[in-house]
Design a protein around this nucleic acid. Sequence first.
DNA 1: AACAATTAGATTGTGCACAATTGAATTTAG
DNA 2: CTAAATTCAATTGTGCACAATCTAATTGTT
Lengths: 148, 148
Amino acid sequence: MSDDQLRLDQMLCFAIYACSREITKLYRPLLDEVGLTYPQYLVMLVLWEERSATVKHLGERLYLDSGTLTPLLKRLEQSGLVSRARSRDDERVVVISLTEQGAALKQRANKIPHELLCKSNLQPEEFLRLKGEFESLLHRMHHMRQTD
Amino acid sequence: MSDDQLRLDQMLCFAIYACSREITKLYRPLLDEVGLTYPQYLVMLVLWEERSATVKHLGERLYLDSGTLTPLLKRLEQSGLVSRARSRDDERVVVISLTEQGAALKQRANKIPHELLCKSNLQPEEFLRLKGEFESLLHRMHHMRQTD
DNA sequence: AACAATTAGATTGTGCACAATTGAATTTAG
DNA sequence: CTAAATTCAATTGTGCACAATCTAATTGTT
């Protein structure tokens, strides 16, 4: 019985881990067209919503730290999509802002969610239900880890 | 309207991506005790089930390719948990086998799934329901990508 | 004012992921 | 039987993730 506990197909964690990677692979061809990686796309999503954001804020929205974000943001800067500048008010803070080119890319990215929904063959209501399930699990896991 | 489609909080993909990483972080302290990373743990799960497996077979079970597996398996070999050997029958194939030490590690790993279930605060029936949901989504995504 | 504690971001180092290419072994077709 | 196609693993190169450490700026305490 304790043997059975270790079977791969019983692992919820594996299903989610593999699922996440499969979804990223579905995105790739669409993101290639706009020249972004998947994590870069997530950063751009936040910036398209908020125009500019601190590294700290991006980290809180995406659950990423500066070790991941700093090099990623430097690459987005190299691509000409964002600018990075120390805040005048607080020299510790780095503010990331959309360049004109970065803002313009939004138009080309707009079709991506719809195309992916089509690719996935999910009904909108099932999509929403799954999103709810994952978000509730996500918040639960995150809260769990904070209060450990 | 097309603006709303690009909001981060509407993204199923992000919920899954973040969820997967949070779960891995819950595992880390438990896996540290047995000296494995999360992907190494997944490889060991397959080997504890099957005693030995080809690189190709491991890749099929875990949805990973040789570019990921080869260096990972070399590290497991360095740790003394597995051995790697070309097949006599077909020199292209590399067979990965548990060493005695690798097989013995199973005893120490047995408690991990239960500890994680406790950490997660999920009821067993909810755990099973979620696993079903995510597996069905996983297979759907994978199949989608194969028949694109 | 002075100094300890905290905070924000950068840096370093390890280990995945994965696309693309390579090379050797095997299978298939002509 | 042999040449082309396929298969399996390794290699190369890029880009995350993340722990740990570091530096500089700010805040809190006395």
